[in-house]
């Protein structure tokens, strides 16, 4: 400690270096942990019953919140965009704009962030409490691979459910946009949806829904990693849950950026 007072620059440097090292170790750890998924997922034993259970659980956990958010997101988007578009005389493009914004970007990302908040933390806490109460050890001594049984099933469930939830949110948000249009401009249902459908191409929907599978992977892997590496004691469980949300959200945003760039390169700007 006296060292720290005398030569602060060295200690700060050391602190930063140690922090950097431990972050790198964590990144490496998560990457290896996540890679293991691909080695396990195609190899028996397949735990279909577990995956189904998690799907039920994930759906019922996130659907109420997603319903509200989806509707309101569409409503707000329409309300906010209407005056701007009108100013440029482009009011007629509103349905198309909403559809594209939602399907390409807002739907997938908002869904992923909300599911990360609900599910990543849930997985972190669930697996974390299994870790600290030795349930993971118990699985292992009864000759069940805990990674296969706990992690692969959860990650798989997240990857399956994310596209479905996103499609659901997309639909609700576009519908929310219509509600706003209908209330303010009394626009017709038929017209609105014809515009929406005409504006969307395969290349809007595919990357939009496709990337949610990757988001699901992130949500599952990061939640499970945090849980699996919960240090002993119950306060560790809370920490696992919180850091799962933070890390998963950051990674989703980051990955989204990368995917957008890739999509632009591969499919062009569209529209």
């Amino acid at each position: 400690m006296s060292n720290l007072r005398k030569r602060p620059e060295i200690s700060y440097f050391r602190f930063a270096r140690d922090r950097f090292k431990s972050s790198m170790a964590e990144v490496y750890g998560i990457t290896m942990f996540g890679m293991r998924f691909f080695r396990y997922v195609f190899v028996p034993p397949y735990e279909f019953a577990e995956v189904r259970k998690h799907l039920d659980n994930l759906g019922s956990k996130s659907i109420p919140l997603l319903t509200v958010v989806g509707l309101i997101m569409g409503l707000i988007l329409a309300l906010q965009s209407r005056p701007t578009l009108d100013r440029f005389g482009a009011g007629a493009f509103l349905p198309a704009m909403i559809a594209l914004t939602i399907v390409r970007e807002l739907g997938p990302v908002i869904t992923a962030l909300i599911v990360a908040g609900r599910v990543s933390s849930g997985i972190g806490a669930e697996v974390g409490s299994m870790k600290v109460t030795e349930q993971i050890d118990a699985l292992e001594v009864s000759a069940v691979d805990p990674y296969n049984f706990l992690v692969v099933t959860r990650v798989l469930a997240c990857m399956i459910i994310m596209p479905l939830l996103t499609a659901y949110v997309d639909f609700l948000a576009i519908f929310g946009g219509f509600v706003s249009e209908w209330v303010s401009a009394n626009s017709s249902f038929q017209l609105y949806f014809t515009e929406v459908i005409q504006s969307l191409t395969f290349y809007d929907i595919l990357p939009g829904v496709g990337k949610t599978i990757a988001f699901g992977y992130i949500i599952g892997v990061i939640g499970a990693y945090q849980g699996f590496h919960t240090s002993r004691g119950t306060e560790g469980v809370g920490r696992a849950a919180t850091s799962a949300v933070v890390l998963a959200s950051l990674n989703i945003i980051f990955l989204d950026m990368v995917i957008i760039q890739l999509t632009l390169i591969l499919f062009g700007p569209g529209v």
């Binding site: 409490s129 109460t133 050890d137 000759a143």
Partner: peptide, 29 residues
């Protein structure tokens, strides 16, 4: 490990399963 039973300090029962399912678990697997 099939020849070894392990009784954990806090029992380590699977908390998402009933007592019946906890006991069935080693047999089913």
């Amino acid at each position: 490990r099939k020849n070894i039973g392990y009784v954990f300090q806090y029992a380590a029962l699977y908390d998402s399963l009933t007592v019946r399912e906890n006991l069935e678990f080693p047999l089913r697997k």
